[in-house]
Amino acid sequence: MSSVVVARGLVKRFGNLTAVDHIDFNIEQGEVFGFLGPNGAGKSTIIRMIQCVSPVTSGSLKVLNMDVQKQPREIKARLGVAPQDDNLDPDFSVLQNLTSYARYFNMPKDLANQRANELLEFMQLEEKRNTMIDDLSGGMKRRLIVARALINDPDIIILDEPTTGLDPQARHLIWERIRQLKQEGSTVILTTHYMDEAEQLCDRLVIMEHGRFLIEGKPRQMISDIVGDCVMEIVGADDEAEEYLRSTGKQVERSADRLYLYSNECRNIERDFQELYPKSQSIIRSSTMEDVFLRLTGRRLRE
């Protein structure tokens, strides 16, 4: 495998604010790599440095073996970026948005038309071909932005929060397409603040906060390493019950109305617990990326 993006000691400052704080990562050819984190974590800032539109403050960043500061044109020619904010061209129709964008890549007109039509089909927008951008729903705009990112048949596809604010149908269509692109061998870089999205789509991901990585790895591996395979949620436990749960030596956390116990053997613990404290109610569920995230960042609101 070869790395298509390599960052070493990467830093981005905006005045006094350090938005990206000395991070290192490699993104490999053909994988779906996710940056997961709350708003303001620095995800878009990393993306904007990879796409050569935001200058690196310090450290090194190479994309496709080229330095972002030295060969931005060559790099940008091989990337496809769906930015977080809608910047479709409202002066054009859906189809024209794709064909006019193709021109910036210096694509021949026939090829551009052919690609544009294929992509409209791929993102299920054929019927909106001649619609103006202002008349599209939010979900359609997102789909068009993804289609536009693919117009130059990029080696690396960068999707900055591709599903934020979408309804479930639109969200699932985009998920399906991302999987399809991966199968066709594309490298996909994804940012999201949805834990389930990251868990479902990413081969590898980092969880970040305040411009730093909290953890890096494969989603399933990460979940079983950090929180174990299952979670027991307990409602109505008194102090004594909590004391008992903690005495098992497992990780236990308290939120306003319930306790969480993270483990690999929830069934056994629950059986013993229910015998001793029959008044408490408990359920067992599989652990998720969300548990990892909350475990790492705490359950308190962070603003």
Binding site: V53, D89, D91, Y104, N106, N152
Partner: peptide, 14 residues
């Protein structure tokens, strides 16, 4: 308002 420049600079156009 239209962020057209942002969209364009994501391509080989600087």
């Amino acid at each position: 308002y239209q962020k057209t420049f942002d969209a364009i600079v994501a391509t080989p156009v600087n």
